[in-house]
């Protein structure tokens, strides 16, 4: 990649602002649905960071899974909550004690992570990065790592069957 150019620095600053701003929005916005939108902004910013690092597959997966699925599922969950006014639906913002505890936990995790990052001796590989990442990932999943792949598949199947069972119970009741 070489030295960062002006353009790359600008792009990185904008994306970082999106990620951090989105994250702060999730915590501090009073309306839960607004917090959800802030979270989507954060996800899109992370996807942008992946794109700027040329990890296209990860970036697209970030959009597909987190924006297309996770955010939508959370939106459905928000619809099921019953709070008189949406304008004050994010309960944790108002309480100072909870904010203090949350800030302390976040600071602790942050310090621990920073320390790990700084102490680890990161190895820079001289190897040329894999050009066809998708093919590489697919072959690795189906040849060298079949067991995690199968476990994930079974887990999803169980979730699917469970969802159908719960839906069927509702149908029988009505």
């Amino acid at each position: 990649m070489g030295e960062p150019t002006t353009g790359k620095i600008i792009v990185f600053s904008v994306l970082t602002a999106m990620v951090i701003g989105g994250g702060l929005g999730v915590v501090f916005l009073r309306n839960v649905f607004h917090a959800l939108v802030a979270m989507v902004v954060c996800f899109l910013g992370v996807a942008g960071v992946y794109f700027s690092l040329q990890a296209d597959f990860l970036a697209v997966m970030q959009v597909l899974i987190y924006v297309g699925a996770v955010a939508v599922v959370i939106a459905f969950a928000v619809m099921l909550t019953r709070r008189g006014t949406m304008a004050d639906s994010n309960r944790f913002v108002a309480s100072g004690l909870q904010l203090a505890i949350g800030a302390a936990v976040a600071a602790g995790v942050g310090v621990a992570l920073l320390r790990l990052i700084c102490e680890t001796a990161w190895q820079a590989s001289g190897k040329f990065p894999a050009t066809d990442v998708t093919r590489f990932l697919g072959e690795a999943l189906l040849t060298r790592l079949p067991i995690p792949f199968e476990i994930a598949a079974v887990l999803l199947l169980v979730a699917l069957v469970g969802a159908v069972m719960i839906a069927l119970e509702e149908v029988h009741k009505s």
């Binding site: 989507v40 697209v60 959009v63 597909l64 939508v72």
Partner: peptide, 15 residues
């Protein structure tokens, strides 16, 4: 990953 990109941003519209 052009095809996946198409699918991913297509689903953003629903949000």
């Amino acid at each position: 990953v052009g095809v996946l990109f198409f699918v991913a941003f297509g689903s953003l519209a629903s949000f």
